[in-house]
């Protein structure tokens, strides 16, 4: 009986250890390779319309500076004060070669839903309850300004 209890405990422990490896903020640095770009159908016109109607304003920049910089750094280079302490480094928003591979909708979802929901690291929190959609679209546009790039 005791033996059974012990082995159950061991299994639970093993599961916890495995899960913890995927957590955010653990000590061990994992090599992080972004998954290859997925070919998608050309963006629908509705997205084009959204881009035009959500320009980057002073408020957009302030929002980025207040919240996102904690991890992404004041210039968006992924070197914010939390960056040495998270398992997966915050994305460098000035890196065109990566951001070109992401559509605006994908960036929108990453900001709104957080990293975990879009198959990225959980250290990227979800901001969908903090900002309205308009603000999040304008943040997407601001990231496009930072990388000086568009989705290809």
């Amino acid at each position: 009986m005791k033996k059974l209890k012990n082995s159950i405990l061991q299994i639970i422990l093993a599961i916890i250890v495995i899960l913890a490896l995927y957590a955010c903020g653990q000590s061990q640095k994992e090599e992080h390779t972004p998954s290859p770009p997925i070919t998608k159908a050309p963006p629908e016109p509705i997205i084009q319309e959204k881009l035009v109607s959500h320009p980057v304003t002073k408020k957009t920049r302030q929002t980025y500076q207040w919240y996102c910089t904690q991890c992404h750094g004041v210039k968006g280079k992924g070197d914010g004060i939390n960056s040495p302490h998270v398992t997966v480094p915050p994305r460098n928003h000035t890196k065109a070669s990566y951001l070109e591979t992401r559509s605006d909708q994908e960036l929108f979802d990453a900001i709104s839903e957080g990293g975990l929901k879009i198959g990225r690291a959980p250290c990227m929190p979800s901001w969908g309850n903090t900002f309205d959609k308009e603000t999040i679209w304008s943040l997407v546009r601001y990231i496009r300004e930072l990388c000086k790039c568009e989705a290809v």
């Binding site: 916890i16 913890a20 991890c71 004060i81 939390n82 302490h85 998270v86 975990l116 250290c123 929190p125």
Partner: peptide, 29 residues
């Protein structure tokens, strides 16, 4: 709850907590 704190909601990205090896780990903002 540990999984929720560290993974599902990513609280550890900004807050230090004690990890399995009983060491403080996590963001500092």
């Amino acid at each position: 709850s540990k999984i929720k704190f560290e993974r599902t909601y990513g609280c550890t990205a900004c807050h230090q907590a004690i990890n399995l090896a009983r060491k403080p780990r996590g963001g500092i903002s």
